[in-house]
Design a binder for these strands. Structure first.
Lengths: 268, 268
DNA sequence: ATAATAGTGTCTCTCAGACAGTATGTG
DNA sequence: CACATACTGTCTGAGAGACACTATTAT
């Protein structure tokens, strides 16, 4: 295995080489050797969620290279030496899928670093979560031989009770599950749902986001009363949308970020 | 600087050395060289919160070594090569402060990796949050020359509007602030507050946790009604505590983890 | 008795859930 | 017209906030 080919000794337990306790800090830093520490790879992965045709979807890439060649995985890759974590996530997403997203639309999800989660070497990934209403089709490049959105029910996500046929590379099923749980929770107390729809949108569109992400039906009249009654959630545009029945008023996103009080998920 | 003393070249943009695209995965892994990637240090830091005498406190260590020698910092240190992130946090906490805590009492907070946040080298820290009712005094050892609990108002935490006199090493003020915000939010929808008090406890004790962490006064009678009415939050013991007035009933922690509905922080 | 803290009862207001009913489009 | 969807009005029950009142100890 790789650990045999490239020795990776455990370092001393504390940080006392190079006179870390005595002498000046400048001297200490001038002689500091980063290579005495274990070599741990740091990557950034992105869970990009969207709603398409009433289904919650996640953007995946088919791996062009070993390991897990040919399996579907989250877009992501190594963090550059002088690059911020958020920037790495944004860059890797763009490189592998062509999907451009503002760095501040990304929120950090969680880091995963269980030994053995990557067969190449000890690897820690900082995962990010993004929400979008992308309508563009992704374009695979780089380490990805293919890129597309998957409905969640196509995937094997045992933590969510979803048993689709597509298995995921590495521990990405766990990461996606955690991302979906985070998204479900955030709908309750933030205006996140509005990030999933194109402007302008109807209240039925917005309700569809909640129903897709939570996988339940909401009461239409109460949802309307709640959204309209929450200052800054949506703003009327004066436009109307053509539907099969009475035309619906169209809205744009408001300024509010948090919902007071929250829209709580119905309990069973 | 250290980057000059130890060259740390940017690796190729994609992972195609050693025939990552062709050949078998076993061949690829046998020849994989972890050292071709940027050397990024990975550490685990712990924000351990507790309530003492009605004050929210955090456990800090005084750094024995460079860099930031003599400044106060979060307990933490390098993750070992074959050690899980949670275990590293638990181990570093015990080594530097003598405070032993179950690994599953730790929850991951966030990772911080802005270039330059540590003067030694590019460093990513995975921070953890712990809540406890520790009464034992910490014992400094290892990289720490001192260890004690600080009331939050002793610290300089500009993100929280707290302007105490003790400045923190690295970006630890930001990490602590994020941890406190997380704790404040978790009191709303989990039974976390009960983790801060010794068993058995009175409802006044429990209310004191909320008031300390949120830094507000709660309405006593309504708090009582809410807690008693939430199945599984607390369980009666039948014991009573001596106070300056009528003796209070004593409770222990219940089985519930989440609060339905939440105890919302009063809005201003 | 008074002081002090624990605990109960109850009124009001807000709001979620439920559902009936009205409005406005299409075929 | 029927039909479909958008939207409004209103009843009800749960629960938060406020506050008065009772209970049990110490001194």
């Amino acid at each position: 295995m790789n650990a045999g080919a490239v020795p990776n000794p455990t370092p001393p337990a504390d940080d006392t080489t190079h006179d870390a306790a005595s002498g000046t800090e400048a001297d200490f830093l001038a002689n500091y050797d980063p290579h005495k520490w274990p070599v741990i790879g740091v990557t950034a992965d992105v869970v990009l969620l969207t709603v398409r045709n009433g289904n919650l979807c996640v953007l995946l890439v088919e791996r062009a290279n070993h390991p897990h060649q040919g399996q579907w995985a989250l877009p992501g890759g190594f963090v550059d030496i002088a690059e911020d974590l958020d920037a790495a996530a944004q860059r890797e997403l763009a490189e592998e899928t062509g999907v451009a997203i503002e760095a501040n639309w990304l929120e950090q999800l969680k880091s995963y670093g269980t030994p053995g989660r990557d067969p190449r070497m000890r690897m820690v990934t900082v995962s990010y979560l993004a929400f979008t209403n992308v309508t563009q089709e992704p374009v695979a490049a780089d380490d990805a031989r293919n890129a597309r959105f998957f409905n969640l029910d196509e995937l094997a996500l045992p933590n969510l009770g979803i048993h689709g046929s597509t298995a995921l590379a590495f521990d990405h099923a766990e990461i996606i599950s955690d991302g979906v749980e985070r998204a479900r929770a955030k709908l309750e107390y933030t205006t996140l749902a509005a990030a999933f729809v194109d402007e302008p949108f109807t209240l039925a569109d917005l309700r569809g986001v909640y129903e897709s992400v939570w996988d339940i039906d909401l009461h239409e009249a109460n949802f309307r009363r709640k959204v309209i009654g929450t200052a800054g959630f949506v703003e009327a545009t004066g436009l109307t949308a053509k539907t099969d029945g009475r035309p619906a008023k169209l809205y744009r996103r408001g300024e509010a970020v948090r919902l007071h009080p929250p829209i709580l998920r119905p309990t069973d």
